[in-house]
Design a protein around this nucleic acid. Structure first.
Lengths: 349, 349
DNA sequence: TTTCATAACTGTAACGTTGCAGTGACTTTG
DNA sequence: CAAAGTCACTGCAACGTTACAGTTATGAAA
């Protein structure tokens, strides 16, 4: 059968499936390449042809096959969100996700979730994504001042954005909450209410925002003439039971704090339980300033001074940042720190 | 250049990139097909060859290219999680995600997130996934007794699992919390504490679990001889401000309830704020039984009678169910209802 | 010795897309 | 009027994988 000379007729694509470039090519009588280029608005295609192709494509509800594009170009159209399964309970994670999705909804990007336990090696998911090329960009959280993940992705020139800053001389996109300013303002507010012996429940010391928080705290202590009541090894990520127990003991001690600053909403709940168990009353013997990522603390105790961290906004900004980075925007243009704002429900100073 | 007769030599793959079947074929001296089939443990490949191929593959850290597989076979290795961006605040969504990821972590599946605002047409994301074939299976929540999404996916024979049951004669995989039993037990507990005039904050009436909740509630009222104090149009998804206001008014009214049942943890917070604003005290004039998806209510008020819904477990079961469905397991074997358990922190009856 | 069966392996084509190197048909230029 | 240039369009090949239809070599059965 020597029909090899005769050019293969353009077969009509299988009727059942979804439309491909071939379908459009068949319907318009054009070549597949032409259709592809027309849809990309390439300069060497006639204006009327483009119009015709676009019309037919829209009519058929054509959507480029992701696997085809990915195989040919390497572009996955995927953003990976890598997060720890131990993130703060109170909706932190989901708010962030929804913020990201909001932005991605208007694009070709899909959001893939890659969680990992943070006692395990945090590099594993990063290496997996880098080695398999399973995403075009990545968003990570819980950054450390010297963060191996950031190091690796930078070396490989892989687009990413971090929730939180680093301090290792690498310029990369980030979105961060100004925890330094939060801690500073928190002390200020407490001092205005006459408080002088202040305890701070800070994040684990390996995370970047530990330092920011401490800096703001200590600067304010010095400036406003207050003193610290130490919390020992307790961090905002300790089990709530531990937080409660520790707090109760502290409030029963000889020199209890009269002001408390909490970096996380859920620990605040445990701290309140502890201090009330010790017979103290919020707003009377002691004031509490807390950051929260959802407006719920003031429903529980209106006396809490609350500052909101808008995590959904963080998600939006991080999503925009990775996409910009993928498009080659310089990383120094993609850095953002959000100012703390006092919650509308919080008591006035 | 008529070298067309000479068989093309197997070119060594580009040195830089990740290994492919071609790389392994080159290294073992086998054909690409053989390698592919060896890794699939096909019966027509010799045992020692399989062993050798597997060894080299492991050595190289070979991972099949997802785009290649997807293009060729249509298998995406993706599970889509479709959820409303208005899900309960208190970690409901993230717990579910983490449960799902936990199970998917041991498989080839990736988890893609597809959120949507639920005032918009909930069919849009479903149709998108079906039409573009962008996932092998789907998990949805917020099911209605007559759910168009379930209808469509069943018609198209697309694997899915739902969080919540339906009532439309379609057999499909689900995982549900036994809200009927929850409501029943809640009434029972309140009656045991001497309460007789009971208010129920139920979900929106279009959702399946509204009916289950009402059924359990009404059955228990009849059985234990209690009466309902109506909540009007208020649902568990009303803005917290509305819940609070309504609750305060209700507690100030001539015939306030002495027992309250809440289907959601966050509304419980608002209800407590409302009843305390009306001068009532939890555990004294009124008792509250609440479901929660994270153990936090008893930190706030130890007097609350709490039942936990383990949403992470739901995520795990749903993930297993979709995968089983993809593998062709009959849907009737993939249905599960979890019994309510009283929280360890809740006060004893 | 021929035929047939089996085990073990392989080449080809196709999934949908796009970069590249063309190919005609016109138009402009000298 | 030939050479060169422009415009609009097109084949081919390749990305990595797998279904399918072979193709050997070997040994058993006739």
């Amino acid at each position: 059968m020597d029909d090899s000379i005769i050019s293969k007729p353009l077969r009509q694509p299988a009727s059942g499936g979804r439309p491909t470039l071939k379908t459009i090519a068949y319907m318009t009588g054009l070549g597949i390449t032409t259709v592809s280029r027309a849809l990309k608005d390439a300069p060497d295609i006639g204006a009327d042809t483009k119009e015709r192709v676009r019309l037919v494509a829209a009519q058929l509800g054509y959507q480029p096959n992701r696997a085809g594009v990915r195989l040919r170009t390497g572009k996955t159209n995927v953003i990976a969100l890598v997060l720890s399964i131990e993130e703060e309970l109170m909706g932190f994670t989901s708010q962030m996700m929804f913020g990201i999705s909001e932005v991605l909804a208007g694009t070709q990007y899909h959001l893939v979730l890659t969680p990992h336990a943070h006692q395990k090696d945090p590099m594993v998911p990063i290496r997996y994504i880098l080695d398999t090329g399973s995403a075009d960009g990545m968003i990570i959280s819980r950054t450390a001042p010297d963060d191996a993940r950031v190091m690796l992705m930078s070396e490989r020139n892989f687009p990413f954005a971090t929730h939180g800053r680093t301090d290792m001389g690498i310029v990369h996109p980030y979105y961060d909450f100004d925890n330094e300013s939060f801690a500073f303002q928190a002390v200020e507010r407490l001092v205005l209410r006459g408080r002088r012996r202040i305890a701070l429940l800070a994040p684990p010391s390996k995370l970047s925002y530990y330092l920011h928080t401490r800096n703001g705290f200590e600067r304010a202590l010095a400036q406003f003439g207050a003193t610290e009541t130490a919390m020992g090894r307790l961090t905002s990520e300790a089990p709530l039971d531990d937080v409660r127990t520790h707090m109760e003991a502290l409030m029963r001690s000889a020199d209890p704090p009269d002001g408390i600053i909490s970096i996380s909403g859920s620990s605040s709940i445990a701290m309140i339980a502890g201090l009330e168990a010790a017979g103290k009353q919020l707003g009377v013997e002691v004031d509490l300033v807390s950051k929260q990522s959802a407006e719920f603390l003031n429903w529980i105790r209106p006396e809490i001074h609350t500052i909101n961290e808008d995590v959904r906004q963080a998600g939006r900004e991080l999503a925009k940042a990775v996409m910009a980075r993928i498009d080659g925007v310089a990383p120094e243009l993609l850095q953002n720190v959000s100012r703390p704002t006092w919650s509308a429900m919080a008591p006035k100073a």
